[in-house]
């Protein structure tokens, strides 16, 4: 009963949250202005900046779109005017590529390292005598049976009572 109401509740919750509508369209000025930095000194993205410089840049973008220029052409124009710093994110080529790649390389390396470290620890854990339960005095009944039951109860215990 409880379970069903929880399910229903979370289901309703998520349905309520998910009234959305995906949008797909031709190149809009927003597609371009979200990738340009306003040059008034505010350091904000043109699309979000409120100042006159941003308005001028947006107008220029709109004009170039109406002339049929592509996003790359328009961004290229702004780079030729202001330098690379006008782009809201570094280009994905040359030296700039490092900033895009290094975080993922670092995480992947860390992941591999953790895998090997963990594997070594598991070996050590298996090589060493069972840390806690082995110190307990052995019961009369068969050790295997005892171990199995211990494991079962321990699992239950650790699931329900542990911190």
């Amino acid at each position: 009963m409880m379970r069903r109401s929880i399910v229903a509740l979370s289901f309703a919750l998520f349905l309520a949250f998910s009234a959305g509508m995906p949008v797909l369209a031709d190149l809009t000025s927003k597609d371009v202005t979200t990738e340009l930095i306003c040059q008034c000194g505010c350091t904000m993205v043109v699309d979000t900046c409120d100042c006159g410089t941003a308005a001028d840049m947006t107008a220029l973008v709109t004009q170039k779109i109406s002339e049929g220029q592509s996003k790359e052409q328009i961004l290229g124009y702004f780079v030729s005017q202001y330098g690379e710093k006008v782009l809201a994110a570094p280009t994905k080529k040359g030296f700039n590529l490092t900033v895009w790649i290094v975080p993922f390389v670092a995480i992947a390396t860390g992941g591999v390292a953790i895998y090997f470290i963990l594997r070594r620890w598991v070996w050590k854990g298996k090589a060493a005598p069972e840390p806690v339960e082995a110190e307990q005095p052995e019961p009369e009944e068969s050790t295997d049976e005892y171990r199995r039951r211990f494991r079962e109860e321990f699992d239950r215990f650790s699931r329900e009572e542990e911190k």
Binding site: E35, G83, E84, K85, A88, A89, W100, P103
Partner: peptide, 20 residues
Amino acid sequence: ISEAVRGVKITVGPPFFNSV
């Protein structure tokens, strides 16, 4: 770093952080 290595000023803004 970019300015030190390439001598080029660049911006690292929201599109970068969001996608990474």
